[in-house]
């Protein structure tokens, strides 16, 4: 038996919007730790890792570890039927082939049940060891979204370089080139507006902008985004989900042969 009650239901709506274009079908795993998902995109270039910790739910009952295969497009359709202020409860029986999403309006005058069919998904789980990153950049998520959108009108690959000068986003295409440099700026009124660049070693890596743009669908979840770079590893683009967890996107670099 599984029953997860999330008072801030809009978080789950935003989470789905953040991953449904990247991944079609995925297994949601439920354990005493929380509600989680790890999935690769169909071309195995990017990976998304979601964790919503159990403490973040008002009520969290998960009698045994459960993996529920869902079509994210269909799940998104159902969650779009929940109001932004609604409380969302996810319910499932052990061994059942459906999941139920219950939406309660804040005044309790409207209660809706949506039952969705589960599916068997043969998904591969990758082990992602903790790593020391050469450089970590924290910036406003809206700024990162703007940069990815702007650069993708010029080229299809972004080179992200971190030096002691700052972080540079560059692209090149048929019509020309673009470079955007951000310098560390912590003298801001609101901490979420800061640009913080933690450089242990300079790093420069190339990534497909198509995926970066897809990751920025998570912008409504968090005011800030953290970009972790190491020359030997995929970039990690992380958005916090309120106080309860995160969405991390991993993207394999493009490498000169």
């Amino acid at each position: 038996m599984l029953e997860l009650r999330l008072v801030q239901g809009s978080l789950l709506k935003k989470v789905l919007e953040s991953i449904k274009d990247l991944v079609n079908d995925a297994n949601f795993d439920c354990s005493s730790t929380g509600f989680s998902l790890q999935a690769m995109d169909s071309s195995h270039v990017a990976l998304v890792s979601l964790l919503l910790r159990s403490e973040g739910f008002e009520h969290y009952r998960c009698d045994r570890n459960l993996s529920m295969g869902m079509n994210l497009g269909n799940m998104s359709k159902m969650l779009k039927c929940a109001g932004n202020d609604d409380i969302i409860t996810i319910k499932a029986d052990d061994g059942g082939d459906t999941v139920t999403f219950m939406f309660e309006s804040p005044t309790q005058d409207k209660i809706a049940d949506f039952e969705m069919k589960l599916m068997d998904i043969d998904s591969e789980h990758l082990g992602i060891p903790d790593a020391e990153y050469h450089s970590i950049v924290r910036m406003p998520s809206s700024e990162f979204q703007r940069i990815c959108k702007d650069l993708s009108t010029i080229g299809d690959t972004v080179v992200i370089s971190v030096t002691k000068e700052g972080v540079k986003f560059s692209t090149a295409g048929d019509i020309g080139t673009a470079n955007i440099v951000l310098r560390q700026n912590t003298t801001v009124d609101k901490p979420e507006d800061a640009i913080v660049i933690e450089m242990n070693e300079p790093v420069s890596l190339s990534f497909a902008l198509r995926y970066m743009n897809s990751f920025t669908k998570a912008t409504p979840l968090s005011d800030t985004v953290t970009i972790s770079l190491s020359s030997e590893l995929p970039v990690v683009v992380e958005y916090k989900v309120a106080e309860m967890g995160y969405i991390r996107y991993y993207l394999a670099p493009k490498i000169e042969e």
Partner: peptide, 14 residues
């Protein structure tokens, strides 16, 4: 520019 690597070039099946 560059060859797109796979995420599986970096992480192994758990």
């Amino acid at each position: 520019p560059g060859v797109q690597k796979s995420i599986k070039d970096f992480y192994r099946s758990a």
